[in-house]
Design a protein around this nucleic acid. Structure first.
Lengths: 185, 185
DNA sequence: ATTCTTTATTGATTTCGATCAAGCGATTGA
DNA sequence: TCAATCGCTTGATCGAAATCAATAAAGAAT
């Protein structure tokens, strides 16, 4: 269960075996059915998550009828709503299971406890790093945005329907469809 | 010197007077002349800064001839290159004094020391929160982006030339100029 | 003082992506 | 089995912002 999780933790910094045990002792496993919510608009995020299996979609509801996809997650990703978790504010966004999923939950208070125990756990803060696309990314052309995604996260393209990828990339489904057919040549 | 700094620290969390002293004891004052660099592309950011006076520009060099303005800072702002500081990677961006400025420097190792001393300093992590505009912001129309800026940071508009504001908002100077004349009606 | 450069404004034109619209499998459901 | 719905593709049109271009105004440099 924890291999992938530990591998990811080790990338963040050098932890002793004892420290790794201290972390795994304190995390909770949560299972989600497709369409279950990991975070709902209006609630304040209390945990960060490691997505062990399945896939999740992070999105914002616009006027209650259209949706803006903020992020698409697959197994191996760290999942959080940065604004709500770090700022401890009610979230404006939702995180929802796109497939049946299991996540490993690391509550904020556990993070506090660990750091209190040993400041070297401070390294875990690196996980909070924002995976949100940069400003540079946002000014690229649709084709360049898609090429970057193919480069960096080819799995995303396999796993999610076109409409969500299009929204994530900030373009219409029609435009993404045309980009794809153009690139195939 | 530290009033504005302390006021900003107190917003982050409840610290005792002793703790506040511990912080101020460990920060360094740095003065910058216009065009001096606080962070240069290729160097790894080791500190975060509180901008005490003056103004700074955070930007990325594109191909060595054009520039993308990532952020514009004025006194009272917390300043950092999130990607480089949190990830401890060489920065792809520059932070440069736009006016003569003074900053209060809080080095990473001091942050570590403080948290080791008392985990309640963990609250300082809130400072790291990314002020970068959200995806939602990036898909707005030029006019809406400008209105949002007027709403949230009217001082920015007073302090920086149009071309930097335009780049920051992801539009051409011509477009921003037209937005302005349109809004005046 | 007078050149040179930078910054902002305004106009004309072009272009790229959004929108509107139709059609086509593929899945779902009665 | 036959709609009905959904996801994707493809075509036609439109519109908003970029680009190109010219000028004016303001600063900087010598």
């Amino acid at each position: 269960m924890y291999q992938s999780f530990l591998k990811s933790i080790k990338k963040v910094g050098n932890f002793s075996q004892e420290q790794l045990d201290q972390i795994t002792d304190r995390i909770e496993v949560r299972t989600l059915k497709r369409n279950d919510f990991l975070l709902k608009e209006g609630t304040t995020s209390q945990s960060l998550y490691f997505l062990n299996s399945g896939s999740l979609r992070h999105y914002k509801d616009i006027d209650g009828y259209s949706e803006l996809t903020i992020n698409l997650f697959i197994e191996g990703d760290w999942v959080l709503d940065h604004h709500s978790f770090v700022g401890q504010r009610p979230s404006e966004n939702n995180i929802q299971a796109f497939e049946d999923s299991t996540v490993l939950e690391l509550p904020m208070h556990v993070l506090h406890d660990l750091i209190a125990k040993s400041p070297s756990f401070f390294m875990l803060g690196k996980i909070l790093e924002n995976a949100e696309p940069t400003k540079e990314e946002s000014i690229k052309s649709p084709e360049d945005k898609y090429r970057t995604l193919m480069e960096n996260s080819p799995q995303i393209i396999q796993r999610f329907p076109l409409k969500h990828i299009a929204s994530y990339l900030g373009m219409t489904p029609e435009t993404l469809s045309r980009v794809r057919s153009k690139i195939k040549d």
